[in-house]
Amino acid sequence: MKSDQFLPSHISMYVSLFQLWSVNGFINPFRICREDIMKLSKIKSFATYHKCIRELQDAGFINYLPNYNSYIGSLIEIKDLDIPRIFQVQSFQNLKSNVINETDFSAPKFYEVELYFKERDLTSNDASLFYSFYESQHWICNNKKLIKCWKAAARNWICKIKNNDDRRD
């Protein structure tokens, strides 16, 4: 992900991480609790949380070492940045050229798909079937075009599952 394509959720999460870093005396690395970060950054979805934290790490703003024990917490290291590109002044022409195009699609990780399905009260097996199908298709639709939004494809998949369940009853 390019740093000029950050969404408000990315910025909110980074500011929340920075705030906790300052509370911890600017010591790297420091421990975080997912619930605290989600509350501070006003992120409600687990999938959005994981997407934002992964993309902040991929962009080089943080180092993230997850820990699946909620009593210990995950480790975060805020990287020392000189002047991030997102804070540099850009001309209007540069801003117009920063529009996201359809080639910027990044395939989701399985845990993101699984979280998305679990939030909608579906099983991990349903998520696995969806992920395996589209992974085997290289995230290309029936019309031979790259998927723009995997969540839209997931919503369609979920509707088909629910329609099939209704017919069986």
Rank of each mutant, 00 (worst) to 15 (best):
K162E: 14
S9E: 14
I27K: 13
M1K: 07
I37G: 06
F46S: 09
R31D: 11
W150S: 06
E102I: 06
A47V: 14
Y49N: 01
R54T: 12
K151P: 01
L7T: 13
A47C: 10
F130M: 08
N28F: 01
N98M: 08
N69L: 08
N156P: 00
I27P: 00
K160L: 11
L129W: 00
F87K: 06
E114C: 06
Y68H: 13
R85M: 10
N101Q: 12
S3V: 15
N24T: 02
A47Y: 01
C52T: 15
S12N: 14
L146Q: 15
S3P: 10
S132Q: 10
N164I: 08
N69F: 04
I43Y: 07
F26E: 15
H50I: 06
F46W: 05
Y49G: 02
S124V: 07
F110N: 05
N63V: 07
D36H: 08
S124L: 04
K44E: 14
I100L: 12
K151E: 15
I43N: 09
E112N: 08
D126R: 04
D80C: 04
D36G: 01
N142Q: 13
K151I: 09
S12V: 01
A47L: 04
I100Q: 12
I62Y: 07
Y64G: 01
I140P: 01
I11W: 02
T123Y: 03
S16T: 09
I158W: 00
K118F: 03
Y131A: 03
F110C: 05
N63F: 01
Y71V: 03
R85H: 03
C33N: 12
D126Q: 07
E112L: 14
N164S: 14
M13R: 04
V89F: 08
L81F: 07
D121Y: 06
K118W: 00
N164T: 08
D58C: 05
D104S: 14
I158D: 08
K144F: 12
A47R: 11
A127R: 02
K51M: 05
D4L: 13
K51Y: 09
D121S: 13
T123A: 09
F130T: 08
A154M: 05
S132T: 09
D104T: 11
L115V: 09
V15K: 12
Q5A: 11
Q93S: 12
K145P: 01
Y64Q: 06
T123I: 08
V15G: 02
L95E: 15
N94C: 07
C33R: 13
F6H: 03
S12C: 04
